[in-house]
Amino acid sequence: MNKIKKFVSNLLKDYFSEQDKKELITILTTSLEEKVEDLVEQGTPVDKAIEQSINEFGSADDVLDAFPKKDVDHKQKLIMTRKHQFWYAVLGYILIVGLAVFFNLTFLAFFHNVYWFIVVAIGMVFWPGTMFFHYREAKK
């Protein structure tokens, strides 16, 4: 039965806010498990019943079909934008701090014996940090 929950969680991983998702996963999993039990009672082997239920269930798009399109689109767009912004910030952070480390440890004689890149690394945290916060707010 764990397989079903995994399947449903995976199906919805990019959609809905955390709380809605949790609720939806619980209900969808319950309904699918009930179907498996019904099929097993009718004589289908468990493995086959699970497989059949998963195959017949439908896609993430079918789940989204059940919700007013406007709500889903708007929310979804915001979450995706925030997600992209967050990852952009993480990459930017790695690039800048990477450069600082490189300069610090290689050819810059300036403060050669001081690990000044740590200051840059801490200072730049604000960027991915802020973006992560925005992303988390959008998912709520």
Binding site: L11, L24, I27, L28, S31, L32, K35, E56, F57, G58, S59, A60, D62, V63, L64, D65, A66, F67
Partner: peptide
């Protein structure tokens, strides 16, 4: 599709 039905529920 059951995905749609259960979600609507």
């Amino acid at each position: 599709k059951e995905a749609t039905l259960y979600s609507a529920v």
